[in-house]
């Protein structure tokens, strides 16, 4: 049951995103760019932090430094 709700919730988010993408894509190209761009910036910056942790672990394995 919980899975079903999660599925329905995610599906709703998808439908909303699609709707937004279609509407803004047609009438407001720059709004569309903001939606996509902001999502991308947040995701890449978060990936940068995850990458830092990875680099940090490798350095720690080599015993070079500890943070």
């Amino acid at each position: 049951m919980k899975k079903l709700f999660t599925f329905l919730g995610l599906a709703a988010v998808m439908v909303l995103s699609l709707f937004l993408a279609v509407v803004t894509g047609d009438y407001g190209p720059w709004y569309f760019a903001w939606l996509v761009g902001t999502t991308m910036i947040v995701m890449i910056a978060a990936a940068g932090a995850v990458m830092f942790d990875k680099q940090d672990e490798e350095l720690a394995k080599k015993g070079i430094r500890e943070r």
Binding site: G37, M40, V42, I44, A45, A46, G48, A49, M51, F52
Partner: peptide, 12 residues
């Protein structure tokens, strides 16, 4: 870590 997030965020 903050520096990493800020620079990537800022560059884009």
């Amino acid at each position: 870590r903050s520096f990493r997030i800020a620079t990537v965020f800022g560059a884009i």
